[in-house]
Design a protein around this nucleic acid. Structure first.
Length: 264
DNA sequence: TAGCAGGAAAATC
DNA sequence: GATTTTCCTGCT
């Protein structure tokens, strides 16, 4: 699909009947009242100025499988690299398609990645992420995660569902609190999910010290590298949810942009 | 629970 | 050109 914005108009060209206006509206969440959401999260100067600066930034509603697989690859990598890994995986395992005279490949199905060899996956530059991606694909292919069910649950239970064990093994290896929150926010409609990556952690330490209790500040100051324990993660994430409310995830997104600067 | 490994590439020095 | 960092999780 190719999308262009002209003022209030969104012009889309597509090669597939699947990408109709219903899909586009859903994907970009166009039926939601963005101003209402932005008003709701603008509870302090920091986020209010980020909202002003990046006004119009939206969360998209991604396909859960694609979202999950992409964020499994995102561990310990930067954005250019993640883009590269995802493209490599699509090129190698996706279905061939054509759009506006140009050939490309779709995001692979869970089956395609589940039956790929780890060695082959590594050739896409995935490194140690390769086995995780394969295992996650297998779980999804085998129906061990039901995204529609996850989406229907309240935030906390939905999160549990993604992080759960099955006979002592994680259903989704390589998926921890951060990746789970990303999947919940970007593809399962949990707008209160507040994923904490290194950028957000830095923003919080710098501008929202009140969200962190003094014990945690001491711990963070001591190791200096902003590595959050699961306990710290949960604590900060819960504080952020309490502070920003129903649309905490939108606040996260605007803060992320502000933290990175305009270069994205 | 703090500390480390894990692989490769980008960012920084 | 070498070193540090990177939208992190799992193991010890």
């Amino acid at each position: 699909m190719r999308v262009e914005q002209e003022g209030d108009l969104l012009r889309c060209a597509t090669s597939s009947d699947l990408a109709d206006s219903v899909f586009v509206k859903r994907y970009f969440r166009l039926d939601e009242n963005l101003n209402h959401i932005l008003a709701s999260i603008s509870r302090n100067r920091i986020v209010a100025s980020a909202v002003q600066r990046y006004y119009g930034l939206r969360l998209v509603s991604q396909d859960p499988w694609e979202c999950l697989a992409s964020f499994v690859l995102a561990a310990n990598a930067n954005i250019p690299r993640i883009t590269k890994m995802v493209s490599a995986v699509c090129d190698r395992y996706g279905l061939e398609s054509k759009f506006e005279g140009e050939a490309f490949r779709t995001f692979p199905t869970p089956d395609a990645l589940a039956s790929a060899s780890t060695v082959d996956l590594r050739r896409c530059g995935l490194g140690y992420r390769a086995p995780f991606l394969k295992l996650v694909a297998a779980s999804v292919a085998e129906g061990r995660v039901d995204f529609a069910h996850v989406a229907s649950l309240p935030y906390n239970e939905a999160r549990e569902e993604l992080l759960r064990d099955l006979s002592g093994e994680k259903v989704l290896p390589g998926v921890g609190p951060k990746v789970a929150d990303c999947v919940l926010l970007y593809s399962c409609g949990k707008d209160e999910a507040f994923p904490i990556d290194v950028w957000i952690a830095r923003v919080l330490v710098k501008y929202y010290p009140r969200l962190l209790d003094y014990r945690m500040k001491l711990r963070l100051a001591r190791n200096g590298k902003l590595k959050l324990s699961p306990r710290d993660y949960a604590e900060i994430s819960n504080s952020a949810r309490r502070h920003f409310g129903t649309y905490a995830g939108y606040a996260q997104q605007y803060l992320f942009m502000a933290a990175r600067g305009a270069e994205i």
